[in-house]
Every structure is written in C-alpha cells, then in structure tokens.
Simulated assay, not measured.
Amino acid sequence: MEKLIAVGLNVVDKYPALGVMYPGGNELNVAVYARWLGAQSAFLGVFGSDGAARANEEVLRKEGVEISHCRHEQGENGYAEVELVNGDRVFGEFNDGGVTGRFPIRLTGEDMRYIRGFDVISASINSRLPEREIERLHSAGVPLSYDFSDRYTPGHLRRVAPHVDFGFVSCSGMDWSRTEAFLRELHALGCPVPVATRGSEGALLFDGNSFYRQPAEKAEVVDTMGAGDSFITAFLLEYAAGVKAGLEGEAIYRKALQAGARFAAKICGLQGAIGHPMPLR
C-alpha cells in the first residue's frame, strides 16, 4: 500500500447560492483522495478554533486520514466563497487561509522523522509553507510534489523549483507551444518533472528529454472543484506504485498521467471537492 502525506491547507468552500459549504483546501483534498484510491494517507496542517475547523477534523477522521501531527490555533479556519458557472468553480471572497496563513507550519524534528516514513509528499503554493520549509521537506529524501497552480511569480518559481521533484502548474488558456516552453523553463530551474494541467485539454509532462501529452477523460461535469488536486493525487500514487514495480521513463509517466486523467474526470461529477455538505455558516 502506498503512503502519501499532504502538508498544508484546509478550508471550507462556501457556496452561497446553494446554502452549503464543503470541506476543502488543496492538501485536505489530496489526503482524502489518497484514501479513496486505497492508499494510507496523512494530513499535516493547521486547524482553527471554530466550527468549520472541527467539522473538517471530523471528516478527516471519518475518511481514515491520519492527523496526529496537525496544529491547532485560536482563530478562524480558512474559507473561500465559490460560485458555479456552467459547472466551473469560480472563487470569490476568501480569508487567506485563516489560521494557516497566520500561523504557517514550521516543521519540527519529530515531523521530519514522521514524514520520512511516507512514499510521497504533496504540498502547494496555497499551503502557505515558507520557502525554507519546502527546502526542509525536500531534504527528507521523499519525492516532493508541489502545485504552483496559476498563482506563482517568477521569483517563487526560481526559489522553489530546485527543491521539488514534481512541479504542477495550471496552464489553462495557454497555447501548447508556450506550455512546452514554460515546462522547459521550469525544468531548467531545477524541477526534474514539471507537469502542466490544461483543464479540458488534458495535461503535458516534460522529463527533460521528451514531452508526454495526456488527453482529458470524458466527464459529466457537475463541479470542477478538486479536479486538479485529484489529478495530482492519482498521478503521485500511480507513480509511487510504478517505482515499486520497477517501472521508469515513458512507462511510468504514461501510467501516472492516465491515472490522473481518469480520477479527475470522476471527481468532476461530484458536488464539492470531496462531498460532505454542511449547512452554510
């Protein structure tokens, strides 16, 4: 069984038009998706002291996600308001991660020993991790995935890329030639395997020698919330399984990309990133 740890953000996604909210946040989603895919998973993040935080903790426990290394701080948990436009989620007001933004994770020696017991680490630009903590995660010797989303800056790319093994970037709306050039740039900065996700146009991976294009799978789209996180989760777990099976090169990348596309299509049919609707507060 593969083991994944997600370090970073948990929020509630509020849908005012529907009167409900759902657990969410990049790393919370990844940790739950890993369980759905049959892996052992953990979430290491910061919970606030409000009802949203308690609800998220309860959902993680129900889903079988390990949360023993999480922090608790006084204050509002993270939230983001969401509007659905033809099934595509559009973010509105948010509170910058709540306590996750106010109390960024500082990894302890005990945390690092714990993290070394996993097969893969997942983090993102939304995790509010200080850049020096990303370097520390990389020093654990466990493959580190980092989602730059579309919120990166050139400076952040330069500083972080050398310390991640898989760099995911959102390139929706960017043409294919520019996407290829961007992945070459990211690889030159020190990221061995950059991956561009392009929504309904699929994904593109560059390993320093070759490009691998993955078409999107057909999906009945209800809500695109979690599509990127689900792609990343399935990709990472398939990659970890492939390493254990002795796969490498094109064989392992093709399988990982296909797994990501299949699972992302499935998640697009779900309301909210992981379900578990709650009355809007």
Score class of each variant (00 low, 15 high):
Val195Asp: 11
Ile274Ala: 02
His72Cys: 05
Ala34Gln: 04
Trp176Asn: 08
Gly190Pro: 03
Lys255Ser: 11
Arg254Leu: 15
Lys3Thr: 02
Ala240Asn: 10
Lys244Trp: 04
Arg71Gln: 14
Phe211Val: 06
Ala219Lys: 09
Tyr146Gln: 13
Gly8Leu: 10
His69Met: 14
Tyr239Gln: 04
Pro192Val: 11
Leu183Ser: 06
Glu66Asn: 15
Val85Thr: 13
Pro23Cys: 11
Val30Thr: 13
Glu66Asp: 15
Asp13Leu: 09
Val221Ser: 05
Ser149Met: 11
Ala53Asn: 05
Gly249Lys: 13
Gly25Pro: 09
Val11His: 05
Arg281Pro: 15
Val85Ala: 12
Leu189His: 03
Ile134Trp: 02
Asp50Ile: 12
Gly199Tyr: 08
Ala251Trp: 00
Ala80Trp: 01
Lys255Asp: 02
Pro277Asp: 03
Gly141Gln: 12
Ala227Gln: 08
Arg35Phe: 02
Lys266Thr: 11
Ser124Gly: 12
Met174Tyr: 00
Arg35Lys: 15
Asp223His: 03
Val59Phe: 06
Gly275Thr: 12
Leu257Gln: 02
Glu2Ser: 14
Phe94Met: 13
Ile274Asn: 01
Thr179Lys: 03
Lys62Val: 04
Phe168Thr: 09
Gly78Trp: 07
Leu236Asn: 05
Ala245Phe: 00
Val164Lys: 06
Tyr33Glu: 00
Ala53Pro: 10
Lys3Gln: 09
Arg89Tyr: 13
Gly25Ser: 07
Gly75Asn: 13
Thr179Gly: 00
Thr179Val: 12
Ser172His: 06
Ser127Gln: 11
Gln271Asp: 03
Asn209Thr: 13
Val7Cys: 08
Gly45Asn: 05
Ile67Asp: 03
Asp119Glu: 09
Ala34Glu: 01
Arg71Asp: 08
Gly98Gln: 04
Leu44Gly: 00
Asp175Ala: 06
Ala234Ile: 12
Thr224His: 07
Tyr114Leu: 07
Ala17Glu: 15
Leu18Phe: 02
